[in-house]
Amino acid sequence: MIIMSNDRTKNVLYLLLKNAAVFFISLFIICLLLALVPDTAIPSEISYFERVKDYLTISYLFSYDYSVSGNFLISELILHGSKLTFTLIFLSLLIVLIIALPAGLLVASEKNAMFQKLFAGTLSLLSPIPILIWASLLMLLVFVFGNMVPLYIDFEDGDFRTRMFVLLIPVAAIALGDGILLDFYNKIRDETRKVMNEPWLKAVKARGLPIYNHVLRALLLPIFITLSSKITYLISGIIIVEYIFAWQGLGFMIWRSLETPGAKDYPLILGSVKVLLFTVFLFSFIRDILTYKLNPQLMK
């Protein structure tokens, strides 16, 4: 449902409210589901609705305390976890763009059909491989040829080579898995071809001016739309990779809290989930804003 209005502030407000509503409803659903988790540590006289109320209070009113282990404040844990998680997300997106952008631009300029077939064929065969398999195989390769297992614990104490392995291997697994690279490559290639055929770009070319800054500007929105559509898959992939390589990020904390038998750290789960949902909300909101701002035809 798109409101076509001359009032830009109204549009922005509408988008903000729409995405915020999605964020709060998602969080509400998570609280409802979390209250269903069987937990022998919770007294039986506490009803389902009381649990839901508690979790909603924790989530919406930011009432976090110490974690179940009692050693750390939940806010500190979430801050530390967010740092690690977003490092992985940012670096994996960087690697995807470093590979997909030049490849897409090169292929779209149709200078080398053989390269296009080879690259596209290889990517389409490798793209169905899930992040879990990439992570396992990369870990195996690094162990066989590098004689080390890239776990996070080695990151802080290791030398430069060790740190590079420990950082790059999980990032490579995320970048290569679940078809993220293929989707970006396809989007960049298709959009570049579309832009290259635009009359205004042909006019720029005819005047002898460089075209790639125009092409890159035109690619910003499609890249961001693809990115925002992939962010939930990225987050799922992060959880897997953090478990495999023992990165103590948000995903690992959610996994450990849910997997631990006995008392589960619900505030930690809710806090971590809130950060991840907020990331999704932010990407969706920025995507919607950019859709209006960068595509002038929609600005009415």
């Binding site: 449902m1 729409k18 999605v22 964020f23 409803i25 998602s26 659903i29 998570i30 589901l33 979390l34 269903l36 988790v37 069987p38 939930t232 898959y233 987050i235 799922s236 959880i239 897997i240 959610i254 996994w255 849910l258 989930v273 991840l276 949902l277 999704v280 909300f281 969706s284």
Partner: peptide, 26 residues
């Protein structure tokens, strides 16, 4: 149809693996 669209938006925004974890544990 608007309700369907809204529900779709909400389902899309929840990380899938989290839903699977919760379904498995519950």
């Amino acid at each position: 149809s608007n309700i369907v669209d809204g529900a779709t938006l909400v389902l899309e925004s929840i990380p899938a693996l989290l839903l699977f974890f919760l379904a498995a544990v519950i």
